[in-house]
């Protein structure tokens, strides 16, 4: 267990490992996303209230979940970097910010577009929407703070601290619909035993999209982290070897 963690902290090991498993991850992601999106867009029956418009839920809900999960991941990496000074953790944290930002933007945009015909408004300052907007600003802030420093080490530390300060916002997003009156609906109660309120034909495709998007998220994080590794380790022999191979290709 510890040995594995220790290995994961090695940039070279991370780079080669992710390079090996990437094709599998890409294949799985394409299948899951493809099945889920086609199913949700064309095969699931329309909702009895919202008609076809609720198909936006198939991208809105997983985008929001992934964005929140991304923030948690970024916070864990920030803590690992601050406490144990693991360089790999900082590289992953750096990769999380832009990915999380785009997913939060996707959740907000798809939610707004969904809201126009169903709610009658594209925005309301309720607790769910406001806290999600705060998360978008946190992602942007973390990126901006990192780039504001000349020293990479200082920037990494400052953005890690901001990340940890903002992590409390994520449970607020999750429970906002329970703690306060919001225009946003609550979380769906999915179960195989009580299928009356949310039948599986509606939420099974959502699971496909959800896991597909999780795979996509991992791919996006891995791609960025690998780039960061190459930049930071450019003076090492093993990166020179990779460059040598690339020279052969050109």
């Amino acid at each position: 267990m510890w040995k594995w963690l220790y290995k994961l902290g090695s940039p070279k090991w991370f780079y080669t490992m992710t390079g090996q498993y990437m094709p599998w991850l890409v294949g799985l992601t394409v299948i899951l996303l493809g099945v889920g999106l086609v199913w949700g867009l064309a095969f699931t029956p329309p909702d009895y209230q919202m008609g076809e418009n609720y198909r936006i839920a198939y991208i809105h809900v997983p985008s929001a979940s992934i964005a929140m999960g991304c923030y948690y991941m970024m916070a864990c990496m920030a803590a690992a970097f601050l406490i144990w000074r693991i360089k790999m953790a900082d590289m992953v944290a750096k990769a999380c910010a832009p990915v999380g930002m785009t997913f939060t933007a996707a959740a907000l945009f798809t939610g707004s577009v969904w809201g126009i015909p169903t709610w009658g408004t594209w925005w309301i300052w309720d607790a769910r929407l406001t806290s999600t907007l705060i998360m978008l600003f946190l992602f942007i802030g973390v990126m901006a703070l990192r780039s504001a420093y000349d020293s990479a080490q200082s920037g990494a530390k400052a953005s890690a601290v901001l990340t940890l300060v903002g992590v409390v916002n994520v449970p607020i997003i999750k429970y906002s619909v329970e703690w306060w009156n919001t225009l946003h609906q609550g979380a769906s109660n999915l179960s195989l035993s009580n299928t009356a309120a949310n039948p599986p034909e509606v939420w099974v495709p959502a699971f496909f999209v959800g896991f597909g998007l999780l795979g996509f998220f991992l791919i996006a994080i891995i791609l960025r982290t690998r780039n960061e590794i190459l930049i930071r380790e450019r003076r090492t022999d093993w990166v020179s070897d990779i460059l040598g191979d690339a020279r052969g290709e050109n």
């Binding site: 076809e52 418009n53 985008s63």
Partner: peptide, 18 residues
């Protein structure tokens, strides 16, 4: 999309862009 084409497709387009 049952008259919701603008909303559904713009949401999916943005998602694809992301």
């Amino acid at each position: 999309m049952g008259g919701y084409a603008v909303y559904v497709w713009s949401a999916y387009a943005f998602f694809a862009l992301v």
